[in-house]
Nucleic acid binder design. Structure first.
Lengths: 192, 192
DNA sequence: ACCTGAACACCGTTCAAGT
DNA sequence: ACCTGAACACCGTTCAAGT
C-alpha cells in the first residue's frame, strides 16, 4: 500500500512460509488465506505468487515444515521396533498440534515434501533392521502412516457412540492412538 | 429465474439431498457448492437455506446418506468377529467410492447422522457378542473407525516412499486396508 | 412458509503494467 | 525480477421484501 510499483518488499519463500506458520499459530488454519497472508506481510495478494505456485503448494510446504519437529530416533538405536513406535508416536503428537491443518492437507492433491520423505526413509530403515523389507515393508509402513495421519485428522470429531458426552480428552485421544499403534505393530509381527 | 416472488418451487429436504448426491456423482465433490446446487434445482441460491442450515449440515447429510449403502451383517450371524470384519470392509468400500468427500467431511465441525450412529450400535453389539464391552469396546471401535475413514481419506495420496511410481491400484489399496484391518482385530484380541 | 433480488464480505488467481 | 492496481470468476450467507 505504501510501496509504488517497482519498490521491493524483500520477500522470500522462507519469509512467506514463516508468516504462514505464524498466521496459523495466531489465528488457526482456517484463517490462512492468500489475502490474509499478504496483509500480514504488508504486500499485495498477488505478490505471493512470485514465491509460491498456489495455495496447495504453500499448504504442502507448511505441513512438511511442521514435520521437522518429529523426533528421529538415533540411527544406532538398539531396538528398531521401539524406534518405529517412537517415530510414529512423535509424528502423531506433532500432527495433533496442527490437527486443523491435516484435513486441509488431505483435501487437496499435492506432493510430499522433503521432511515427509525423510521420515519414510528412516522408517523403512528401521523396518529393515527389524527384518521386514521390500513390498512387505512398504505396505506395513503405509498402514502405520495412514493410521497416524488419520488419527490426527479425525481428532476433532472422534466417534463416541454415546449420544451426549464430552469430547475425548487429549489424554484419552493419545492413549487410544497408542493402543492402536501397538495393535498394528503386533499384527505386523513386530512385538516390542 | 422464471418464478416471481411468491411462486413455490416445490423443494424439500429430500429433494435437496438427492440433487446434492447427483451433483457429486456427475461433477465431483469439489463442484458441490450451494450456488451450483441451487442452479441444478432451478432456484435462487438462498432458497436452499429453507431446508438446510448451512453447507456443513448438507455435507454431513450427504455423507451419512451414503453410509446407508453399507452392508449390515445379519443380526444372528454365527461369528461376531467375522461380522465386524465384514462391516468395516463394507464401510471402507463405500467410503472409497466417495473418497473426495471424506476430507471435506473431516474439515468441518459437524455431527454424525443416523446411519453413522446405527453403524456404531451394530458394531458395539458385535463386540459384545465377541466378549468385549464397555470402555474397552468403545476404544477398539474408535480405532477401527478411524483406520477405516482415514484410509478412505488418504486414498488419493497414499504414501509410496518411492520417488516416481504409479499410484496404488484399487486392488492394492483394498488389500492394504484389509491387511491393516486384520492386524488391528488380532491386536484387539479378536482372532477370526 | 417459501421463494426472490440484492447485497455483504469474502475467496484464489491472472493480467498488464511499472521500475 | 519483483511488485502493484485492477479485474475475473467465483464463494457462503444474510436481509428485506413479496405472495
Amino acid at each position: 500500500m505504501k510501496r509504488t510499483p517497482g519498490q521491493r518488499a524483500g520477500l522470500s519463500f522462507d519469509a512467506v512460509l514463516a508468516a504462514a506458520r505464524d498466521l496459523i499459530a495466531d489465528d488457526g488454519a482456517d484463517r490462512l488465506t492468500m489475502r490474509a497472508l499478504a496483509e500480514r506481510l504488508d504486500v499485495a495478494p498477488n505478490a505471493l505468487y512470485s514465491y509460491v505456485a498456489n495455495k496447495t503448494a504453500l499448504l504442502d510446504a507448511v505441513l512438511d515444515s511442521f514435520l521437522a519437529d518429529v523426533d528421529l530416533p538415533s540411527p544406532d538405536i538398539d531396538d528398531p521396533v521401539a524406534g518405529i513406535f517412537a517415530l510414529m508416536a512423535s509424528s502423531h503428537a506433532v500432527l495433533l498440534q496442527h490437527r486443523d491443518l491435516v484435513p486441509l492437507y488431505l483435501e487437496r492433491q499435492g506432493s510430499r515434501g522433503p521432511f515427509a520423505q525423510r521420515l519414510g526413509e528412516v522408517t523403512l530403515g528401521l523396518f529393515a533392521r527389524a527384518g521386514i523389507t521390500g513390498q512387505e515393508a512398504r505396505e506395513a509402513m503405509r498402514v502405520l502412516i495412514v493410521f497416524t495421519i488419520g488419527f490426527a485428522a479425525m481428532a476433532p470429531r472422534m466417534p463416541d457412540a454415546s449420544e451426549s458426552s464430552a469430547p475425548l480428552s487429549e489424554g484419552e485421544l493419545r492413549a487410544t492412538y497408542l493402543n492402536g499403534l501397538r495393535w498394528l505393530l503386533a499384527g505386523i509381527g513386530l512385538s516390542s
